[in-house]
């Protein structure tokens, strides 16, 4: 509740105490969150913790049993689904796909594909693209909607490590360029945490949330991800320090306009 007591009117998306059930199973319990313009919010959690369900509930795909979801009216959403399974019977080039559902100018389509680094896919069938190419095409389509918020569901699943790092750089660049907020679900903690303004640790309910640093030190987070994450966290710290000292690009949490509007806090319920 405390999350929503602030300036809810300005939020792009917000959820108040939502519960989602599939039959008898309660997948999400009493989850509240909001995303403000320009923020990068990352949801992390183990498999089956309801991460994708939360995104789908926020988008209105999955009905909520209790609580409410509010989307700013007329909100332009750029959605990148976890994976796109295309039936081989549907002939669709990347170029055509980018013009769905709104017709786009050919120049805009070409520019979007260039921007995500896959201009060569324009005339190729979606079914013939590699996993990495397809993710980038999906991202290009999301950008063409001139989104106020990008919603990404484990966008790097199935990519190798360089592909993954490249994809995150793409997201950061797009965010910087368009000022769109980013709401992202992820399981690869170290890369994501470095780029996020806020991390929400989910396991059916919100276990803890705050800045990456605060969450990574929270006992709830450590309990959820176990000892195995020490390695990942070390790597995250390393990447973070490396970027900082050598000044390769900017760490978002240090940029003035990303001054954290939400004082870091850890809400514990464990």
């Amino acid at each position: 509740m405390s999350l929503l007591s602030g300036n809810t009117a300005m939020s792009l998306l917000s959820a108040a105490n939502i519960c989602v059930r599939f039959g008898e199973t309660e997948v999400l319990h009493d989850v509240s969150l909001k995303v403000d313009p320009g923020e990068i919010v990352t949801i992390v959690g183990p498999n089956g913790s309801g991460k994708s369900t939360l995104l789908r509930a926020l988008l209105g795909i999955v009905p909520v049993a209790e609580g409410s979801v509010v989307r700013q009216s007329g909100l332009r959403i750029g959605y990148v689904p976890q994976r796109l399974q295309i039936d081989r019977s549907l002939p669709m080039t990347a170029q055509r796909f980018l013009s769905l559902p709104e017709r786009q100018k050919p120049e805009a389509v070409a520019a979007a594909l260039r921007r995500v680094g896959v201009p060569e896919t324009a005339n190729r069938m979606l079914t013939d693209l590699s996993g990495g190419q397809l993710q980038r095409v999906l991202f290009a389509r999301a950008l063409l909607a001139e989104p106020e918020i990008l919603v990404l569901d484990e966008p790097t699943q199935g990519l190798d490590q360089p592909g993954e790092a490249g994809f995150y750089r793409l997201i950061e660049a797009a965010r910087k360029e368009t000022g769109a907020a980013v709401l992202m679900v992820s399981h690869d903690l170290h890369v994501v945490m470095a780029a996020s303004d806020r991390v929400i640790c989910l396991n059916g309910h919100i276990c803890c949330e705050g800045t990456p640093h605060v969450v990574s030190n929270a006992p709830e987070y450590r309990a959820l991800f176990g000892l195995g994450t020490h390695g990942a966290l070390a790597l995250y710290q390393h990447v973070h320090d490396h970027d900082h000292t050598h000044d390769h690009g900017h760490d978002h949490s240090h940029e003035p306009h990303h001054h954290d509007p939400h004082p870091a806090k850890v809400t514990s319920d464990a």
Binding site: I77, L90, L100, E102, V151
Partner: peptide, 13 residues
């Protein structure tokens, strides 16, 4: 066509 391609993409649009 959008709804046929992917229902979630359709919803988000």
């Amino acid at each position: 066509l959008t709804a046929t391609l992917n229902e979630d993409l359709a919803f988000s649009a």
